[in-house]
């Protein structure tokens, strides 16, 4: 067509704190990958910001935008966005995040200053999750998981990093779920693991996995995942709504995350029971 279309505008509604900081520090962002509901951008220092439809829920490194129809339809891999004050501009699209509400997680304090109640909660959570896990595990995955009990935490990370297929390999999703449990119940352990494993994580996984995993170890998970976990542990509720949305993450990412959470919780259970 001859008529040159105007630049299509999108508006940020929520912006994760990490995304906000990364965006305001950078100037040039390259499109790393494009999906129907999310577009991943990479800044100058290889940091990841995800532009997502509002319905995809919120996360620390997400920028949720509307309108959702024709979501970033013209954007293709390797397009370049420039940040001008509170907007991202490419030659086809403008994303204005000036008024976006900052999102800083659904953090509620759940400490592991142990008493029996906690163990009860964890036991309950494990029970609630258990029926699903068998459905998620193929034989190959099961075999891999059987190795777990004999491994230290660091060794487990090494074993699972980058394992499996998918945009975020299954092993990475598994570890992300595990890490979220760890960060919630034993934040100090998680922090330590972060420092020990970060170099290996950066080396062995792709950009998106890496971002997810490191965030998880610092206790920053996706809105739906955190809500699910908190409901599970604090209220003993199996939050079906969040669960269904988690299962829609990526190809097998959702299953991986939940499986990771389950085994993370089981590990806690084992430790608590001595």
């Amino acid at each position: 067509m001859i008529f040159v279309e105007n630049i299509k505008q999108y508006f940020g509604i929520y912006i994760g704190e990490t995304a906000r900081q990364l965006l305001l520090q950078g100037i040039v962002f390259r499109v790393h990958s494009v999906f129907r509901d999310v577009v991943n951008l990479i800044g100058e220092a290889e940091e990841l910001v995800t532009v997502a439809k509002l319905q995809k829920g919120r996360a620390w490194y997400f920028l949720n935008v509307v309108p959702e129809e024709d979501f970033l339809l013209n954007v293709t891999k390797d397009d370049v966005f420039y940040r001008e004050s509170d907007s991202l501009l490419s030659d086809k699209v403008k994303i204005n995040f000036k008024e976006a509400v900052i999102w800083r997680g659904v953090r509620e304090e759940v400490s592991k200053e142990v008493n029996l109640d906690d163990l009860k909660n964890i036991k309950n959570a494990v029970l609630l999750l258990k029926p699903w896990i068998a459905k998620f595990l193929s034989e190959k995955k099961l075999e891999k998981i059987k190795k777990l009990p004999s491994l230290s935490l660091e060794e487990a990370f090494s074993e699972f990093l980058g394992w499996g297929e998918g945009l975020t390999p299954w092993g990475d999703d598994f570890l992300t779920g595990w890490s979220l449990v760890l960060a919630l119940l034993e934040p100090q352990k998680a922090r330590k693991l972060y420092f020990v494993c970060a170099p290996e994580i950066r080396e062995k996984t792709n950009l998106i996995s890496c971002q997810q995993l490191l965030s998880a170890l610092s206790g920053q998970g996706h809105e739906f995942v955190e809500k699910f976990l908190l409901n599970l542990l604090k209220r003993g509720i199996f939050d079906q709504w969040s669960f269904e949305r988690i299962l829609k993450f990526g190809a097998t990412s959702g299953e991986g995350l939940i499986t990771g959470m389950y085994f993370g919780l089981k590990q806690e259970e084992r430790e608590l029971m001595g």
Binding site: I13, Y14, V66, P67, V101
Partner: peptide, 18 residues
């Protein structure tokens, strides 16, 4: 101006509600 109407895109009202 340059944005969808809030009846079409009520999310634009979110920051103001908060």
């Amino acid at each position: 101006r340059g944005k969808p109407h809030p009846m079409i895109e009520p999310a634009l009202r979110v920051p103001r509600i908060i």
